[in-house]
Design a protein around this nucleic acid. Sequence first.
DNA 1: GCGCTCTACTAGCGCGCTCTAGTGCGAGTA
DNA 2: TACTCGCACTAGAGCGCGCTAGTAGAGCGC
Lengths: 345, 345
Amino acid sequence: MGSSVDGTGKQRPTMADVAAKAKVSRALVSIVFRNQPGASQKTRDRVLRVADEIGYRPDNAARLLARGRSRTLGVMLTVHNAFHADLVTSVYPEAEGLGYDVLLAATAPGHGESHAVESLISHRCEAVILLGPDAPTADLDALGRRTVAVSVGRRVPGARVDSVRSSEGKGVRQAMDHLVELGHRHIVHIDGGRGPGSAERRRAYRAAMRRHGLDSGVRVIPGAHTEESGIAAGHLLVAERDRGHPLPTAVLAGNDRCAMGLLMTLARAGIDVPGEVSVVGYDDSHLSHVMPVGLTTVRQDAVRMARYAVRFAVERLGDGASEKPREAVLDPKLVVRDTSAPPRP
Amino acid sequence: MGSSVDGTGKQRPTMADVAAKAKVSRALVSIVFRNQPGASQKTRDRVLRVADEIGYRPDNAARLLARGRSRTLGVMLTVHNAFHADLVTSVYPEAEGLGYDVLLAATAPGHGESHAVESLISHRCEAVILLGPDAPTADLDALGRRTVAVSVGRRVPGARVDSVRSSEGKGVRQAMDHLVELGHRHIVHIDGGRGPGSAERRRAYRAAMRRHGLDSGVRVIPGAHTEESGIAAGHLLVAERDRGHPLPTAVLAGNDRCAMGLLMTLARAGIDVPGEVSVVGYDDSHLSHVMPVGLTTVRQDAVRMARYAVRFAVERLGDGASEKPREAVLDPKLVVRDTSAPPRP
DNA sequence: GCGCTCTACTAGCGCGCTCTAGTGCGAGTA
DNA sequence: TACTCGCACTAGAGCGCGCTAGTAGAGCGC
């Protein structure tokens, strides 16, 4: 007896409890909670009041089971990624506006993408939105056949998966045009290894150099989308300078985190940015606003990307029409701040 | 007819489908999938093979409903917070080791804490782990009565909620002792406003100054747990110096992000760290490893904090015993890196 | 009186699973 | 032969809800 009611016995109240206490049928309570026609205003108020009193919350599991649809979107993200955080922030309002709930699952060391996705699916997410997926195309295709999947930030040609990304080509081209216009000729690129989008950025960098007649100056320093990689590249450049090689006058980093690490290393080495070296990032993640000296970078519009991702998922759930995978390619936008300037004469 | 099988018609196979195809009862399939005794090895293999063939996955919603327990832990986090990311990373393995699944919900602008928690609860999380909750104590207490809740990084005295935090007092004391031992006397503190733990850190800073006989030098610059706040404080100090006031020889920042902003501002102003000013952070978040010059900081052990949080939740689910809210206070540890040194004579 | 419509409400099945209480059935024991 | 025992397996109730089909009653026209 002692164990049944107080504190410890957290027995969730059910619809039946509410119904009994409000002296109506279960069905009526259901109607009220789904906000459907078929109940008088008076009854609605009473039911809601009673429900509130006994702390009733509809049970999603049962709800899903009964209606066959969960109206829940799953989002897979990398928990340390600031850009993913931006995206998630924008996914919420969009999804809720369309009547969908959002559940998150993170990838982390020891908790890979398949884990995260399985978790989402088994919690009945109707669709999964994958932020920067890293899985093989074949896996994504298989996933896309099993459920509705949207990839954000990565093209997945040949897989049954919608995708949303920004045009890496255009972004890089804008950045390069900006630098060349300022007068830079010696521009190196720290690439993002196999990070999302980096292959395209690399390609676009090369193309831009060629287009500006700077073929011979092409230099790609292998890197990754991390601060460490920017630091390493910075050390490399500084070491080269100390051995008598000239610094490049501009660096196009693989992303903002990389640019960030680079900036700190340059600052430490007493190299003036943008006086001696201009630095351009990529992403316009929170970092860029936050630094005392604004980072010139390429903005990927997280809000619009999130919107497209959610819409793709919901539309495909809606009709299942439009058999072919769709792709939204958004134009990124160069944001010029304080780390880029004409090279010193 | 055309719409029933191919591509679009993502009809999830159920247990009954597997049972029919394997020529056994549904119950047997259930036994196999729960890995319970009561089926021969031969049958197990056959069932699993058939299930795999038709792509069957157990449906969590139904499973939860049926067994009354979800064995799922919900984690509420702030999506932009690096320390939360560390915690989440450690929550996963711990929870999975205990047989629990993990679901995340983020707080974000327009998607407050109550939203996130409701979402978790309605998805049948048996317990919620709140990372740095900001809600009023009364709300947390109410939540703790409705379900099992654990607060991480914030004491919630008087609420029916377990909590895990590190001893701000000890952390700050270690940092201050370190600075004083190096010879610093002029130490200011940039506080964290109403951020988690900052009240205690502020108090501990004052106490330490007093203890070292530096009462008269106490100075708290109002701030927040953000890079911006570090930048602002940095500008303030630089401006003061330009007006002839001496710089402090050491700064205890409210957390790493704040320290980070401060460092960048100082670097920009040509102030040498740690030559002219020593800087100590708090959190040992990823940032600290990542900067080219290692940040001296106070480590909150994310791994252990996550472990305690999960254990508290699971234990309370297990027996419901130990009526009184429990509290784990972990000792943080000063990590001396490169931003602290003796003051210039 | 009858039929009709409209609103407010209820009965009860079924979603996909778990779990208790069984049913056979072959082997071991007396 | 009769009896237990243990193993492999099954029948069927029920988890909390949504939803379809239905009922009761009020109002209205003839």
